[in-house]
Write a protein that binds this DNA or RNA. Structure first.
Lengths: 345, 345
DNA sequence: TTGAAAGCGCTAACAG
DNA sequence: CTGTTAGCGCTTTCAA
C-alpha cells in the first residue's frame, strides 16, 4: 500500500547485537571494541570487529559515560565564539588534543560573566575528564564565587580543571606574562625612538589588559617617559571599540606618535581607523594572532606561543593533580614589524 | 595526622540525592528538573529546585541521553578547524543555535576525507538530535559511500542530518549558488573594464571551486572574453597555496589584469603576494568573511549571508523531515571594493 | 499529581 | 580468555 517511504525507524545497533552476531558475550564484545584490556583472543576480536562493521555499530558514548562515570576527552569552554572568530586558543587546543588522541568538545559561552557560569554548569553535566576554560576575567566579576564553587565541586568529583588566561583562581592554570610583555613592548618602542604614547585598553577591571597596561606604563617610566593618565583609553575589548576610541583620541588633538593596543584585535581597529583617517601613527598590539599576518602594515606585537599554551594546559590536565594548584607562566616576546618603524635618526 | 588534603573524592550529587533531600520521589524530581511535563505541584517543584541548588546538582546528560535514547542539541562537524581559524559557519551556527536555546557541540575533523568519515562516526556515537556537517567535498572522494552510509543509518535511527555546502548527497542541504556567484563576478569585472584574467582555484575535484570557476568562465565568455586554460591555476585550497600560485602565474610573464580567487582565504594569499612583489593587479574573492574586512585594499568578493545559511540549516533540522531530501540554495551577491578599481576610462 | 519499577546501553568485578 | 551479573543515573510507563 503505502509507498515504501522510509518510515522504518531502525533502532541503532547495540553492543548486544554485535555480540550476538559475533557469537560472543557482550562483555567480550565490549572488550574488543572499547576496552583498554588486551584480553581478547584474536579470532574473537576479529569476529566482533566484523560484526560491528556489518551492523554499522557505533559506540553509544552516553551509555559508556554512564557506566564509566566519566566522559572521555576534554571539554573546552570558550567565551564568546561568535565575536572572537579567530581565537587562537581553540585551534591550539584542538591540535594538541588531536595529537594525544583525545576528543575535544567545544562549547561557547556568551561574553557575559553569568554566561560563563552557565556554560560551566553545562559542561559539568557532561562529566568530561578534563574541563578547560578560556577567556578573560575581571576583578569585579561578581560571579567568581559561583564559578569557583562549581569548578571545585567538579574537581571533588574527580574531574580535572585547567584555566587558560585567568590566573589567581585556585585551579591549575596556564597564563601569560602580560605585565612583562607590556613592559618589553614599552622598552622596545622607546628604543625605537618614540616619546609620545597612548594606550588603547579594555574593560577597566579586566585582568589581562590591566597587567599589560601596567607593564607598559612601567616600561615607559623606566625609559624616562611619563604617561599622562588621560592617554590611557578604556572601552570594550573589541576591534570596533578600539576603532572608535582611536577617533576620540585623535580628536583631542594630542600629539601621539605611537599607540599600544592591549591586544591584536584592538590594534587592528586602531590600524584601520588610522588608515581611514589618513593618519600615520605607529601601532603595536599583543597576542600575535595568525589571522592578522596579512595586515598592512604588518603589526608589531608581543608574540605568544599559542600552541605551547594549549600543550602545557593539556599536559597539566593529563598528569597527576598536585597538592596545590599550579600556574605555568608563558612568556611572549616582542616582534617588531612594519607598524612601528624606527624613528631614531 | 595527614594534612587535610582534599583526597575526599566526593560523588557527584545524583537525582536521587536531590529527591531525598526534597522529600519526594526521583520521578518527581526528574519531572521538576528536566521534564517537559507540567505535572508537578508548585510546592514540590520549589523544594526540588532548592535541594538541587544546595547540593550543587547538575544533570548527568549522559544518563539522560541513555534513558531518552538521544542527546539534546546539535553536533557540528567542521573540517579542519586548526587551519581554518576564521570559519564563518561556526559562529553562524553557534549564534543561531543559541537563539533557539539549543546546545551546540563542535567537533573538528582533519582535512583528509577519511577524517570526516571518522568524525561523523564519532558524532554519531553521541546520538545528537541534529548532526550538521560542513566543509567542501570532492567529486573523486572515495569515502563518499561510507559517509553516506553512516549518515543514512543515522537518519534511520531517528537523527536529523543537515549538510552545509555539499549539495548532491541524499540529505537535507543548504548550499550556495557558487556557479552564479562566479558568473556574476565575471560580469562585474568585465563591466569594470578588465580583459585579461586568471583564476586561482583549489583542488581539481572540489565541487565548490569547480562551480565557482565554471561560473566565472561562463560569465567571461558571455562578456566576449575567452579564458585560456592555462590561466586557471589549481592547487591547495589555502591562503599559502594561493600565495605560491600567484608567484608561478606572474613568473610566466602573462599580462594579467585581474585575478579571481575562488575564496577569500586564497584571495588574501594573492593580495599578499602581489603586495610583497610590489605588483598592482586587481583581485576578487568569494565568501566575504568577516576576518578580512580590515585588509587593504579592501577585497571585492561575493558576499554570502552566513548567518542566514546557519539559520536555514537549523530551521530545516528542527522542522519535520520531508519525503525527499531538500536543498536550499542561498544566493550571494557581488560586492565591489577597492581591490578591483574601475579601469573604464 | 505522585511513586514504584522497569528499563536505556554499556562496563566492571567476579567467577570460571 | 570469556561469560554472568550487577549496577551507572536518569526517564517513563503504569497504578495508585
Amino acid at each position: 500500500m503505502s509507498t515504501m517511504s522510509e518510515t522504518t525507524s531502525t533502532r541503532a545497533a547495540r553492543l548486544s547485537d554485535v555480540a550476538r552476531l559475533a557469537g560472543v558475550s557482550a562483555a567480550t564484545a565490549s572488550r574488543a571494541l572499547n576496552g583498554s584490556d588486551r584480553g581478547v583472543r584474536e579470532a574473537n576480536r576479529a569476529k566482533v570487529l566484523e560484526a560491528a562493521k556489518t551492523l554499522g555499530y557505533t559506540t553509544n558514548v552516553a551509555a559508556q559515560a554512564v557506566a564509566r562515570g566519566r566522559n572521555r576527552g576534554v571539554t573546552l569552554v570558550v567565551k564568546g565564539i561568535p565575536e572572537d572568530y579567530a581565537n587562537p586558543i581553540i585551534s591550539g587546543v584542538v591540535t594538541a588534543a588531536q595529537r594525544r588522541g583525545l576528543p575535544v568538545t567545544i562549547t561557547s559561552a556568551g561574553t557575559d560573566p553569568a554566561d560563563l557560569v552557565e556554560a560551566v554548569h553545562n559542561a559539568r553535566s557532561h562529566r568530561p575528564e578534563i574541563l578547560m576554560i578560556t577567556g578573560g576575567r575581571a576583578t569585579d566579576d561578581a560571579t567568581i564565587p559561583e564559578l569557583v564553587d562549581a569548578l571545585q565541586r567538579y574537581e571533588a568529583e574527580g574531574g580535572r580543571v585547567v584555566l587558560i588566561t585567568q590566573p589567581g583562581l585556585p585551579f591549575d592554570t596556564v597564563a601569560y606574562e602580560n605585565r612583562k610583555g607590556g613592559y618589553d613592548m614599552a622598552k622596545t618602542l622607546a628604543g625605537l625612538g618614540y616619546r609620545n604614547f597612548a594606550v588603547i585598553s579594555g574593560m577597566k577591571h579586566g585582568l589581562t589588559q590591566r597587567d599589560r597596561t601596567a607593564g607598559f606604563i612601567e616600561g615607559l617610566a623606566e625609559s624616562g617617559i611619563q604617561l599622562p593618565a588621560d592617554r590611557v583609553l578604556i572601552g570594550e575589548f573589541t576591534r570596533d571599540a578600539a576603532y572608535a576610541m582611536t577617533g576620540d583620541l585623535l580628536r583631542r588633538g594630542i600629539p601621539v606618535e605611537a599607540i599600544f593596543a592591549v591586544n591584536d584585535a584592538m590594534a587592528l581597529g586602531v590600524l584601520t581607523f588610522l588608515r581611514d583617517a589618513g593618519r600615520s601613527i605607529a601601532v603595536a598590539g599583543f597576542d600575535d594572532i595568525q589571522a592578522l599576518r596579512d595586515v598592512t602594515p604588518s603589526l608589531s606585537t608581543v608574540h605568544l606561543p599559542w600552541d605551547q599554551v594549549a600543550d602545557e594546559a593539556l599536559t597539566m590536565a593529563m598528569g597527576p593533580r598536585g597538592d596545590e594548584p599550579r600556574t605555568i607562566m608563558i612568556e611572549g616576546h616582542v616582534v617588531v614589524r612594519e607598524s612601528t618603524p624606527s624613528v631614531v635618526p
